[in-house]
Write a protein that binds this DNA or RNA. Structure first.
Lengths: 239, 239
DNA sequence: AAGTGGTCTAGACCACTTG
DNA sequence: AAGTGGTCTAGACCACTTG
């Protein structure tokens, strides 16, 4: 079996939702209807519905039916994922636009965060990440040149800074801050926002074995992006 | 069927792991072994194993077996803190204003999240949390009345819902979503926002041993609140 | 009464890893 | 070759919501 049948059904349903054929809160086919349409047993149709429900894409009510949940891009809070992978794992196309890749004298805040001296040179990259041609995130990143001397020679339209950094300086630690902000004019422009709207801003400082590597400001429109996480405490009680 | 068979098997396995009978990375019974032990079909035993795997409690390898996963590292980004403690630990004064504490017929989305039936009664509380007399967070919370029958009798101007819930139904699991939104008029009013500004909204679903306990929407002005965290990867490599 | 989702059975064939 | 997990079938009974 090249592709599982339940996966094909999920794929089909996701497509219907994406193209808007099945709007939010509309009813989707029942287990029995899907089973007949795809010539599978009810258990297989059920699995497709069930997994989409666990992913937060559908919600179901016994005796009533299954419905499309409100949709948004979602990423995990717990893991630091490469945004390209994240987008592609949703079955969408990823692309990037490199706006800047330069060397700057280090602003005081950045110097302090990266353990550099004020006015020392620091690498800076500015990139827009697109999901299916729609800007999902503006990434402004300062990189410690002592740790990553070749940063400025990379082609960041083909590899994300995150992926490159994780290859040359494996991540050992990260610090996050999450804020809601109203973006400035410049950010609005690059995120194709006609009017300023609430944006999520992640500030992420990453560390490798030898200390602070980079400080990134990741800004995404609130209407297109959210962070999701899952915590499990069952096993933590023991220690 | 009072309690589903797959749930009983999960319960049993969780207990074994919690009491240390099944240490990290040790092998747990196979689908066939569990099916025989509990006199159920393999599909039912499989479901128990599968759900524990999705919860991150087990990991499985085809042809080899199922194993107890490693402890998750803690992330203060998602650390579930009592907001009263959080405010007081900054040396500020905490107070709360109870706006609503009622019983409602359950909306479909809430029912699905809490494992309740549509239109069944659900408890609802609405509270504003103040830091030094300034509103910091609007908390709208739906609570499973089957698990927390006395919720509606509590005095939430003196104890936060989070603290009360953690006392009567210890947290085993939590799911988070973080979004940036523009608040509606009602929210603006209670957060004393003259104009709508970007707000952080945490959606938090909490679980106890017996299932979903509550679903909370926590909304805070972006200018007054942010989430901060620290991730350590040394222990996280598992999959 | 008809349709929905929730649970379960007792089989089946498969791909995979191990001794 | 024996055991594991992965997928699937064609039934069954149930609780629930709706017309």
């Amino acid at each position: 079996m090249a592709v599982a049948k339940f996966a094909e059904i999920k794929e089909h349903m996701l497509t219907q939702i994406e193209i808007g054929a099945w709007p939010e809160h509309s009813r989707v086919p029942s287990e029995n209807e899907l089973a007949e349409q795809f010539s599978v047993s009810r258990m297989t149709a059920r699995r497709a519905l069930q997994e989409l429900t666990e992913q937060g894409i559908l919600y179901r009510t016994q005796g009533v039916g299954s419905f499309v949940a409100a949709l948004k891009s979602q990423s995990s809070l717990l893991e630091i994922r490469n945004i390209a992978d994240e987008i592609q794992s949703r079955g969408h196309s990823y692309s990037a636009q490199l706006l800047q890749l330069t060397e700057l004298p280090c602003p005081a805040v950045i110097a302090s965060a990266l353990g550099l001296k004020h006015q020392q040179q620091v690498f800076f990259s500015l990139i827009v990440h697109y999901e299916d041609q729609v800007p999902l995130q503006l990434e402004a990143r300062y990189v410690n040149p002592q740790q990553i001397p070749d940063y400025i020679q990379q082609d960041f339209s083909h590899i994300t800074p995150h992926l490159y950094l994780s290859q040359v300086a494996p991540l050992t630690e990260a610090e996050h801050t999450v804020e809601a902000i109203l973006p400035d004019h410049f950010t609005c422009q690059h995120l194709h926002l006609k009017k300023p709207e609430a944006c999520l801003r992640l500030t992420r400082r990453t560390f490798s074995r030898d200390g602070a590597v980079s400080l990134a400001y990741l800004t995404s429109p609130g209407s297109r992006y959210r962070l999701g996480g899952h915590l499990n405490f069952a096993l933590e009680k023991r220690s």
